[in-house]
Structures are given as C-alpha cells and as structure tokens.
C-alpha cells in the first residue's frame, strides 16, 4: 500500500517535468524534423525526402552563414571565458562576503532589460552621431565622426556583453566550492602563480568552464537581435536565415531543415570541443 503511494507520489512529482520536456521540447522537435523531410512539389502537394537538406548543403550562402555563425560564436565564447574568468575569480575568492552580492547584482543588471533595449543602448553609444563618436570629436581626439556600428567587432562585443553573465555564474559557483587551502598547498609545494592557475585552479573549475562554455555558445549561436541590429548590412547570422525561410519565404520545410541543421551542427561543435579538451559531460557538468 505504502509502496503504491510512494510510486504515485513519484509519478506526480515527475509528471510536470515529463510533460514539459515532452510537450515543449520533444514534440516540437519531432514536428520540425518531420516538416524538414517534406518536399514541396506544388500547392498542397508534398512527398518525403531529403531535398531540403540537399538544398541547404548545395547553397554556399547557407553553408557559409552557418560556419560563420559557429565560428563567431566560438570566438564570443572564448572571449567571454577569458574576460569572465578573472571576474568570477574575483567574486568567488577575493571579494568580501558583503560586496560579493553587490558584484553579482551588477552582473545581473544587463539581464533586467530586454535584448532589444540592450542592442539599442549599444546603437546609441556607437553610431556615427552617437555618444562616443561625438565625445571623441569634441575632445579633439578625432577630426570627424566615425561609425563604430555595422561590423563584426561590434557584433562580437555586443554578444560577449549579452552572454558573459552565463559564463560567470557557473564559474563563480564552482570556484566558491574550492578550498583556499588548495591554492596555498599549490604555492607551498613550489608552484608559481602560473602553475597554480594552470594545474589547480583551471582543472578545479573545469566543470564550471565546460558548462559556461556550452551555455554561452548555444546562446550565442541561437541569438537573433544582437547580431542583426549591431551588424547592419554585414551581419549574416544563421537564425536570421531560419526566420527568413519561415516568415518571408513561407518555406517552412526548408526552415525546419535549417533548424535541424543548426541543432545538429551546434551539438557537433560542443561534442568536438569536449573531445578536443579531453572532457566529457559525465566528468564535468554532471559531476556532483
């Protein structure tokens, strides 16, 4: 009797989770996968096949945009790690208990405004008649206004700014778990600062680094507004092409194929990243 009861409570506990995964993640993915395999012959006439994928691979614009998106996402992830690690280390290890909360809050502030507002913030700062350019002219540092928008560098800066928090949070939580005695032991046994960083801090923080990198990479590759708004005329981003397929071209079949391609390709990049750095999900993210 009590065993039935406990089984029932287990089912009840898991039901929302299973429903959520099933209805909001698996089912739509299955739908997308199904749609991506439909070939449009004419109005309301479809057959099954891989034509959408063949088209995707056959058109250099799509391939190159996907590669470009992945490459820039990797760059953004690397920059977020390089910039986020010292910040996370400071918050977790150096800052006092009381200022820690304030620092964390400061990192959170960008998340309080929407993507769109954040992007417009950058636009107001960086445009030709924007705050920075005008100020530089006024102080006589440059002779005439410069345009700082609409290039890859700006897109990367904007994306790093957007995602860096998702790098910092997992890093802080792993680094906070590190006993300071480990660092002191590292020095005591003869390690230089570099050795301690390379052989103790980084290996210890590896679960945080791996989860932070996966989150930031996925977020970046899937972002839409920031690259479009800051990149202007030179900002091909793969999500924009998916939007175009669905919305402006009414081509859901091809759009679905693009969606699947993005999912598969980003998963592949994550897998390759794990392999290259000799990590596995089991020893990092899933580690208790």
């Amino acid at each position: 009797m009590s065993r039935d009861a406990s089984r029932l409570s287990l089912i009840l506990l898991f039901a929302p989770f299973v429903l959520w995964i099933g209805l909001l993640i698996i089912l739509p993915q299955v739908g997308i996968g199904y749609t991506s395999l439909r070939e449009k012959i004419s109005w309301n006439e479809y057959s099954f096949g891989l034509k959408n994928y063949v088209d995707f691979l056959g058109e250099p614009v799509y391939r190159n945009t996907l590669l470009r998106t992945a490459w820039m996402s990797i760059l953004v992830t690397a920059l977020a790690l390089v910039m986020g690690f010292p910040i996370a280390y400071y918050i977790a290890k150096i800052a006092r208990e009381r200022s820690r909360a304030a620092l964390f809050l400061m990192c959170l502030i960008p998340l309080w405004v929407s993507d769109l507002v954040r992007a417009y913030g950058w636009i107001v700062l960086l445009r030709e008649t924007g705050v920075i350019s005008t100020a530089l002219v006024k102080w006589g540092i440059i002779n005439q206004p410069i345009e700082m928008l609409y290039n890859d560098m700006t897109v990367i800066i904007g994306l790093v700014y957007t995602v860096i928090l998702f790098m910092i949070v997992p890093l802080v939580s792993t680094l906070q778990g590190m006993d300071d005695a480990l660092l002191e032991a590292g020095y005591n046994l003869g390690g230089s600062r570099l050795t301690v960083l390379r052989r103790i801090i980084i290996p210890y923080a590896m679960p945080g680094i791996v989860s932070g990198c996966i989150i930031t990479f996925m977020l970046t590759a899937g972002s839409y507004l920031t690259p479009i708004l800051l990149g202007g005329k030179n900002s091909s981003w793969f999500t924009e092409q998916i939007y175009n397929q669905f919305i402006t071209r009414y081509n859901w079949e091809s759009g679905s194929a693009f969606g699947v391609a993005l999912l598969v390709f980003t998963s592949f990049v994550v897998w390759a990243g794990l392999r290259l750095t000799g990590q596995s999900l089991a020893t990092t993210v899933a580690k208790d």
Binding site: D179, A181, E184, A185, L189
Partner: peptide, 10 residues
C-alpha cells in the same frame, strides 16, 4: 612544506 588541516589534496 605544509600538511594542511584538511590536507588539501588536489
């Protein structure tokens, strides 16, 4: 060299 209170093995 030092043996720490909680040993601090890596």
């Amino acid at each position: 060299k030092m043996v720490f209170q909680h040993l601090a093995l890596f």
